[in-house]
Amino acid sequence: MSVSIDIAGLRPERVAVVPSPLAELGMALHALAEPGHHPGLQAWVTGVTARLDPHLADRMCEADFLWRTTFSDLFLPSAGVPGRTTLPGATLAEELDLLDKLSDEQFVDAALEFTCALPYGLPGPGPLADEGLRRRSLELAAARGPQQVRFTERLLADPPRIRAWLRQFLQDCEEAFFADAWSRLRHQLAADTRLKTDLLRRKGLAGALAAVSPAVTLDEATGLITVDKLGDGRTATGDGGLLLIPTSLGWPHLMVLHRYGWQPVLHYPVGSPEPAAPPSVEQLALRMTALSHPVRMRMCRHLARSAYTTSELAQVHGMTAPEISRHLGVLKKAGLISTRRRGRYVLHQLDVTVVARLGSDFLEGILR
């Protein structure tokens, strides 16, 4: 399993390493929503949460699926600008102007990525044009809760209104906590940008990618970048460019934007994580046995990001509901997942705190 980027014909000047304040704000929101993914940020999360205005906190919950369950491509709008060569802005305001350049169709498709209802790497109509996709998006949003349903309904009914809402929300986040964080983080990101740009000049793309992550490799003979992830995807630079965007808040997430028609992006973490605490021998034996099956490993990739119903997992993995239920039973017996009921939906989710005790290598692998 991997995500690949075909770079055949890519000109060296079309490869850019550049920080993105909007992408970093997206990672800040993700860390606030899922602190278990980022044990090294616990102190920062606690401090921001304690100072957060209650009204802004409520608004965060209203659309948190944009950064909690997936990292929405809305936080990388430069990749969607026609021509596929646009760079991120130097300031959040400039990046929000780039977000305004996306069409309503692009905006809605990227915002509804959390439902898994839309073809991500393939061409095709979106829910604004396809009534079947519209119904499917609302159905899958219902499994996430009433707030997600209401937001999705408003998004489909009036995209410009939601676009204005999101822009104002992100500006309010900048004022409340992100401006202070960015003033500290941008220096580290700028230093990494200079380092990777120098490597591009001296050692070429293969040298720069080797410094990004051991999980990223380039086969220069075939012109194919391969990112080792528990997921599948393929894209190509075509006549566009390739963006390498560092993140300070994002470890352990190594993400690849491979949306059809968008500029490919590698969003990679900077800095070294703190080592995880070792698990007990009793936990290790039971839990590693449960995780030894490749299907259950792939399931963990989804369950680490969000809660899913059995039927959703069955659809994603191309299996029957009883087969998925058996695998869920093994994971639950090992104490690796939690289950809760919301109305008529039964949702399952990975306990990332428990998984972290198995070791940072496994956690990084499923969250990559």
Rank of each mutant, 00 (worst) to 15 (best):
R357I: 12
E323A: 14
V81I: 08
Q168D: 15
V108K: 03
V265M: 04
L87T: 11
H348Q: 13
D109R: 15
V227T: 01
D53P: 01
A57I: 11
M60K: 00
F71C: 08
L118E: 07
T49S: 08
A334L: 06
P279D: 06
S137M: 09
L102C: 11
L363T: 05
L185K: 02
H258K: 06
E113P: 05
L328G: 02
T339A: 01
A181F: 12
I324V: 14
D64N: 09
T70Q: 10
D6F: 09
A285C: 13
G359M: 09
A50M: 06
Q188G: 06
G47L: 02
L98E: 03
T320A: 02
T217A: 14
R163M: 00
A236G: 07
K229I: 15
L189Q: 03
S248Q: 09
H258L: 12
R134M: 14
P123Y: 14
A191Q: 07
R11K: 14
G207V: 12
P294H: 09
V281F: 06
F177W: 00
L367M: 09
H187C: 12
A141M: 07
D198F: 03
T310E: 02
E94C: 02
A215E: 13
P54D: 14
L185V: 12
A164P: 00
G89C: 07
V346M: 09
W44C: 05
F114Y: 10
L98S: 09
Q168M: 15
E94W: 07
L218A: 06
A181V: 10
V352L: 09
L96G: 00
R287L: 10
A110L: 12
L347N: 06
A190T: 06
D239Y: 05
P127A: 11
L170I: 15
R194S: 14
R11Y: 10
G240F: 02
L224D: 04
R234Q: 12
R298T: 10
L87A: 03
R296Y: 05
M255S: 07
Q349A: 15
S306I: 05
H293A: 09
A334G: 01
Q188M: 13
L102A: 08
S306Q: 15
R287N: 04
A31K: 00
L242H: 02
A142K: 06
I5L: 14
G26D: 12
Y345R: 11
F65D: 03
A28Y: 02
T85Y: 04
S248W: 13
V3G: 04
T86G: 03
T197Y: 09
V265R: 01
V108W: 01
I337L: 04
A141T: 02
A129D: 13
L66M: 02
L200D: 00
P146H: 08
M60S: 01
P322D: 04
L56S: 04
R186G: 04
S20N: 09
V270E: 00
A221D: 05
T217P: 08
A129K: 08
H38G: 13
R68N: 09
M255T: 11
P19F: 15
T197P: 01
G231I: 07
L98T: 11
L118T: 07
L336P: 00
S272T: 13
E62A: 12
L66V: 10
A16G: 08
L313K: 01
L138S: 03
E175Y: 12
C173F: 04
F107E: 02
E95H: 10
A129N: 10
P269A: 05
G329Y: 11
A285F: 11
V149Y: 09
L209C: 07
W182H: 04
T91H: 03
A181Y: 08
R184D: 10
